[in-house]
Design a protein around this nucleic acid. Structure first.
Length: 245
DNA sequence: ATAGGGTGTCATCAC
DNA sequence: CTGTGATGACACCCT
């Protein structure tokens, strides 16, 4: 099995990580052979005869790439999965492919044709479960990979959007600066063009320009509090980058 | 020698 | 309740 320790020749007893598997097989077997249910742990460790080959509790170690390579080298031994080897060892009358892929009704029909031992039935059901789970695991991993790829795409798209927004911000900021400067020049130009009744210019320290509600521009004394248009006025809140006259 | 990727398996949950 | 799919975790192999 997967967790069957590294050594294919290890005796079952020393394959420790097997606790889970041992229990699972025990559970399966226990369902089929109620007499074993409720007995002690010692039973748990000695149930599944089809697992008890010299290679380990499961009877066969996982079909590693090395195994496959070895099989390839061995002309007379086709590449068999562990379950196929188990099936062969237990003389199962149904192919692993059928065991795994047959619909339940056909599967049960086939099984009922033969007089199978409890061990054979247990193996058959484990083979079916493992076969289906193998496919499920493959799908699960493909899906996970797709999700990762999709998320990577999303990250890329969001980074692009962030860059676009930053560029837009930079542009708008420079526009704001440019327009403020233009306004400042215009304000000074207008202010400097104004003359009092005596023909003298107004002091920018004593007067400022303000816009009235109807949109007209008024020249008002500095003491007047609100609505000054003077970009250099210090009596009103100003952005830090307001052009200072 | 070791890290990282791939695969099979088991346990567990959800349907 | 049973069968199955999905998935995390683990063990093991290979590169």
């Amino acid at each position: 099995m997967g967790r069957m320790g590294g050594s294919e020749d290890s005796p079952p007893a020393i394959c420790q990580p097997k606790v889970r598997e041992t229990f699972s097989f025990f559970n399966t077997f226990a369902k089929l052979v109620p007499e074993v249910s409720g007995s002690g742990v010692e039973h748990v460790q000695h149930n599944h005869t089809y697992h008890m080959s010299p290679e380990g509790p499961s009877g066969l170690s996982r079909p590693t790439a090395r195994d496959k390579q070895r099989n390839r080298k061995n002309d007379h031994e086709r590449t068999l999965t562990r379950d196929e080897k188990r099936a062969r060892a237990m003389n199962l009358p149904i192919s692993c492919e059928d065991i795994i892929n047959l619909p339940m009704d056909e599967f049960n029909e086939r099984i009922s044709k033969y007089d199978l031992t409890e061990a054979q039935l247990s193996l058959i059901r484990d083979i079916r479960r493992r076969g289906k789970n193998k496919v499920a695991a493959q799908n699960c991993r493909k899906r996970k990979l797709d999700q990762i790829l999709h998320l990577a795409d999303e990250v890329k798209a969001i980074q692009n959007r962030k860059n676009e927004l930053y560029n837009e911000f930079e542009y708008l900021n420079s526009e704001r600066t440019r327009i403020k400067h233009k306004f400042s020049l215009l304000y000074r130009h207008i202010f400097q063009s104004l003359r009092d009744p005596d023909g003298n210019p107004y002091s920018p320290h004593e007067y400022s320009l303000q816009q009235s509600a109807d949109g007209s521009i008024l020249l008002v004394p500095r003491s007047s509090p609100s609505h000054s248009m003077d970009p250099s006025a210090s009596n009103k809140p100003r952005g830090k980058d307001d052009p200072k006259q």
